Amino acid sequence: MRAGADVSVIARGPHLAAIRENGLLIEAKDGTFHGRPKATDDARDIGEQDIVIVSVKAPSLPQIAGGLRPLLGAGTRVVFAMNGIPWWYFHAHGGPFDARRLDRIDPGGRVWSAASPDRVIGAIAYTACTVSRPGVIHAENLRNRIILGRPDGVPDEQTDRLAALLAAGGLEIEVTDRIRDAIWAKLLMNLTGGTLGVLAASAMRDALSHPILGDVADRIAAEGAAIAQALGCDPGDHGTVRARLSVSGHKQSILQDLELGRAMEIDALFRVPLEIARLADVPTPTLDVVVALVIQRAKAAGLYAE
């Protein structure tokens, strides 16, 4: 909207009602922005789009798959701005795992069939946002950065167009031909901060003040990096993960979900990376323990089922 694009929003419940009545308010460190996008809970109301951005949590993917179809024209690109391993990860990957489906994230291939991985633009977001009340988004970061890239790494006019629109809207945008490197760089933060955040029920700044948890964080990051490297990815310096998390007073999103009683992204963030580790024959002794504990915590809260 800020860049002059015609924007529509698909939302539900009180959030939808608030946007329809009052518009959408973004509270950021550099000021506030108020817009009035078209808002609906039925994709058929808005029809085919040039670009569709999907930002639901991974557990909701199967439920929204059918709703994507009315939005897709012949040249529509679909951006999946989500944490963890994406459902399309092995599309155009090359090597022995090329085109492998991830049924734990996309059971029955519903999203694969509805969206088609050929349309995908991968997106990694470095933002710390919360819905402070219906229709109001509070962004805590001074820098809100998004990395975009196609699974096949081939330059794409629509990706560049999207990048220009988002940058004009005030976001810090990078386009990469190695989007999987960016996926793993963010995932090291999620594997470390997400697991320890849930188990410690704390922001990382508090949890990592304990030396033993700091050592565990280092081992988790190292194991995550080993998985990435076994797949030919460069996740960056895993030795900096603890230091970067240690300054964060923001609760990890998966801990927020636990506290608010929302479905937790156990599979995309934790279980699928471990399944990939088994495929690549990478040992993950520390992750095996902490992920098992997080799964049990989520099950005990009634927020995760096999």
Rank of each mutant, 00 (worst) to 15 (best):
V120D: 04
A222K: 13
I295H: 01
L24S: 08
R180C: 09
D106H: 03
A139K: 14
P70T: 03
A201E: 14
E223T: 03
T159H: 10
R101E: 14
I266E: 03
D118F: 07
P86G: 07
R271I: 15
I121L: 14
D98Y: 02
V198R: 12
W87S: 04
P96Y: 00
P70S: 02
W184T: 09
M264Y: 08
E157P: 09
T32P: 00
R100D: 07
L71S: 04
L25K: 14
I19H: 06
D237T: 04
I173E: 07
A164K: 15
D152L: 02
L165E: 14
N83T: 02
P285G: 00
M264S: 04
G84K: 08
V7E: 12
M264R: 08
L16M: 03
V111Y: 09
R145V: 05
I19G: 02
D152A: 01
K299D: 05
P117S: 13
G108M: 00
P211L: 02
A3D: 11
R242I: 12
L142M: 10
F97W: 11
Q158P: 03
V54C: 15
L24M: 07
L213G: 05
V291Y: 01
D215A: 11
E140A: 15
S246C: 05
A203P: 10
T159C: 15
M204G: 03
Y304V: 00
L148I: 00
I173W: 14
E157V: 02
T286I: 06
A226T: 02
D177W: 01
N141W: 08
D288V: 01
P151N: 03
G66M: 04
L293N: 11
R69E: 13
R104Y: 00
A11S: 15
L260W: 06
A114F: 13
A43M: 02
L171W: 15
V247D: 11
D218T: 07
G170A: 09
E140I: 00
T284A: 01
G75Y: 00
P155C: 10
A92Y: 01
V79S: 06
A123P: 06
V78H: 05
H238D: 13
